[in-house]
Design a protein around this nucleic acid. Structure first.
Lengths: 262, 262
DNA sequence: GACTATTTGTACGTATGTATC
DNA sequence: GGATACATACGTACAAATAGT
């Protein structure tokens, strides 16, 4: 069997979506309908739609008015270069103003814990594994829907020096500015980007549909003489894009892409 | 049925992997084995392993010595800030030297075509949709395995001025340097990062296992007065990580994370 | 609120095919 | 070839979620 039936069915349905015959929000034909149209069993139809679900093209909505619905694409843009830079822009929270500027409603859940650092995080902060760190976690919601999680780790000795980092509330002027005031101006940073499938915890926290990867943005921030923090942003892949600019902002602004989907 | 059987089976198997009881390259118990251990049917076992496959945790290896094998994590690091900067570093091809520096074997397949620009690409290049562009495509292999694809688009008028861009071969000094020599020094760029599931074309080109997302790095390069090109890098998510630095490179180098997995 | 129809989800059984050792 | 492992494909039954009456 060179080309399995369920793949043929999936290919035809995929074509309907990519060609534009079915648009975002439209429903695929129902399972009994597809059984008849392709002359295959229900399980085979389900194997086909499962493929599309795992490709992130459709999601299932159970119940009578439901079905397999074509999913929408990326909407929110996160500007990595605007975040955390101690400039006049970073008034309260860089993320919040980003979101509101794009016309959405922003809200966050904040949580503070003390954690033992995993080896890879300890490596980034240049401390020994298992040493303590302050974890300031933000779960971020756009229009009430969870959109991303930010976990920022500060080495314990730094938190002892800058006690406000232990405050279990939002820091009004922002942590970057706070640290700058205390002599830890974040002059440089190291950004890493990774794409992977979510852990079950991430999937439930961000309410991710099957077939949705996450985009990780890991930023290690340095003052003049030490790593100051490492910040892990976990973005729901279907709703977020991260952008960053280099060079002369004026030139870029003049030709800034606006539509931008891909 | 609050917690379906297949999810329970998947959860136990996942725990074996994340806890370290099963390591990269190890095999899960076989299907008949799991049927007996959990007292479920074969189809239920398969529903469970399908979940893990789509989470990118395991892949199936057919045949007798095969089975469901625990997959490995990210290895190759792509330095976005080193690529395409007209400095002493960018001798021949930035990517090739990156890979070889990390101890792997690099090779690429190059292809040149003329394309009509899709709206989102035209937008980035600040030309009207459907206008022509030169597409220089590189399929990149690490140790013989496909790892990423780079599609770089140049506006047609630019290619007419810099005819070497139409050469269907690698450009020895690199396109960035070539353009710089002709008065199009790329001073600024706009980077976008997106995580999504691959299209079937990408999956077959990069030989992606099910459950593997891709990481898109879209770079729009600007000279002093115009967009010069847009470059779309499609990375296999399970094998690549993109990094970028800002600020003083010397400070970062002093504390550079090396292990770094996540 | 109760009931019904529709649609997807879970779970089982069975048979046969394909790939690899 | 034979044994082992996953892949495809069919059938069946009942459960759960949702929309409309």
């Amino acid at each position: 069997m060179p080309e399995p039936k369920y793949r043929k069915v999936a290919a035809e349905l995929r074509e309907l979506i990519t060609s534009g015959a079915l648009r975002v929000g439209d429903r695929l034909p129902t399972e009994p309908n597809l059984q008849e149209r392709f002359g295959v069993s229900r399980n085979t139809v389900r194997d086909a739609t499962a493929l599309l679900v795992n490709e992130g093209l459709v999601e299932s909505v159970p119940g009578r008015g439901g079905g397999m619905v074509v999913r929408k694409k990326v909407t929110l843009t996160f500007h990595a270069h605007r975040a955390e830079m101690p400039g006049p822009t970073a008034e309260t929270d860089a993320w919040r103003s980003e979101v509101e500027q794009q016309g959405y409603l922003a809200s966050q859940d904040f949580k503070l814990t003390i954690e033992a650092l995993a080896p890879d995080l300890a490596d980034r902060l240049h401390v020994v594994p298992d040493s303590s760190a302050v974890l300031r976690q933000c779960v971020r919601y756009v229009n009430g829907e969870p959109s991303s999680v930010q976990n920022t780790y500060y080495p314990m000795d730094l938190a002892n020096e800058v006690q406000e980092l232990l405050s279990p509330r939002d820091i009004p002027q922002g942590t970057t500015r706070l640290l700058a005031e205390r002599g830890y101006l974040q002059l440089s940073y190291y950004d890493e980007y990774v794409s992977r499938m979510p852990t079950p915890e991430e999937a439930s926290l961000l309410r991710l549909q099957p077939g949705t990867p996450v985009l990780l943005h890991i930023r290690t921030g340095y003052s003049i003489n030490r790593p100051v923090r490492v910040s892990i942003n976990v973005f729901s892949g279907d709703r977020n894009r991260v952008v960053s600019t280099h060079g002369d902002p004026a030139i870029i602004a003049k030709f800034l892409p606006e539509e931008a989907a891909e």
